[in-house]
Computed example of a mutant assay.
Amino acid sequence: MDEKIRLSIGARLREERERLGMSQTSFAELGDVSLRAEQDWERGNSAPKADFLAVAATHGVDVLYVLTGQRTPKTAASLSQEQQALLDNYDHADEEGRAAARRVLSSLAKQKTG
């Protein structure tokens, strides 16, 4: 495998691990691999095998993103409980409440990007 590809996969794997709030040790333990193997993946020295990625996916890792850099589109089944609760609250709000929620979220998103 090309070194540039391994480095990209390693960087995205680390990003996903950090997004999930996991240490390298706990991440390695997901798939019963050594800490050294996990560190080698993040450094781009090697790449994770499919069996590890399959297990990682069940713990919230976006495997498509790790491999390609393209995020998996969100579906109702892939939402976290917190995200689903937000959508449920939005669905049960009246139109005035929905409009207020859109304004708040729009404002927060602008602050983050600005």
Score class of each variant (00 low, 15 high):
residue 73 P to C: 14
residue 89 N to T: 11
residue 36 R to E: 13
residue 56 A to H: 00
residue 40 D to F: 06
residue 73 P to G: 13
residue 23 S to I: 09
residue 34 S to L: 06
residue 15 E to M: 06
residue 112 K to L: 15
residue 66 V to E: 00
residue 61 V to H: 03
residue 33 V to Q: 01
residue 22 M to G: 02
residue 56 A to R: 00
residue 27 F to C: 15
residue 22 M to H: 06
residue 105 L to E: 07
residue 59 H to P: 05
residue 40 D to R: 11
residue 97 G to V: 00
residue 69 G to N: 09
residue 63 V to L: 01
residue 8 S to K: 12
residue 52 F to D: 00
residue 73 P to A: 14
residue 16 E to Q: 05
residue 100 A to Q: 03
residue 13 L to P: 00
residue 101 A to K: 04
residue 103 R to I: 10
residue 60 G to E: 03
residue 84 Q to G: 13
residue 52 F to M: 02
residue 26 S to G: 06
residue 38 E to R: 05
residue 107 S to R: 07
residue 82 E to V: 13
residue 113 T to E: 15
residue 43 R to T: 05
residue 108 L to A: 12
residue 83 Q to V: 05
residue 49 K to W: 09
residue 31 G to P: 02
residue 98 R to T: 04
residue 107 S to M: 13
residue 36 R to H: 15
residue 41 W to P: 00
residue 107 S to H: 12
residue 88 D to A: 14
residue 85 A to K: 14
residue 13 L to I: 00
residue 52 F to Q: 00
residue 87 L to D: 06
residue 92 H to R: 14
residue 18 E to H: 03
residue 28 A to F: 04
residue 42 E to F: 06
residue 71 R to G: 06
residue 73 P to Q: 15
residue 67 L to I: 10
residue 82 E to N: 09
residue 99 A to E: 10
residue 2 D to G: 04
residue 96 E to S: 13
residue 13 L to R: 00
residue 93 A to Q: 11
residue 20 L to H: 04
residue 107 S to T: 11
residue 54 A to T: 09
residue 78 S to D: 13
residue 53 L to R: 03
residue 85 A to C: 14
residue 46 S to I: 05
residue 20 L to Q: 01
residue 6 R to Y: 08
residue 95 E to L: 15
residue 80 S to V: 06
residue 76 A to E: 15
residue 28 A to V: 04
residue 29 E to A: 11
residue 13 L to D: 00
residue 82 E to W: 08
residue 47 A to I: 15
residue 104 V to W: 04
residue 95 E to M: 11
residue 34 S to R: 05
residue 99 A to Q: 08
residue 39 Q to R: 11
residue 4 K to A: 15
residue 74 K to N: 10
residue 20 L to W: 06
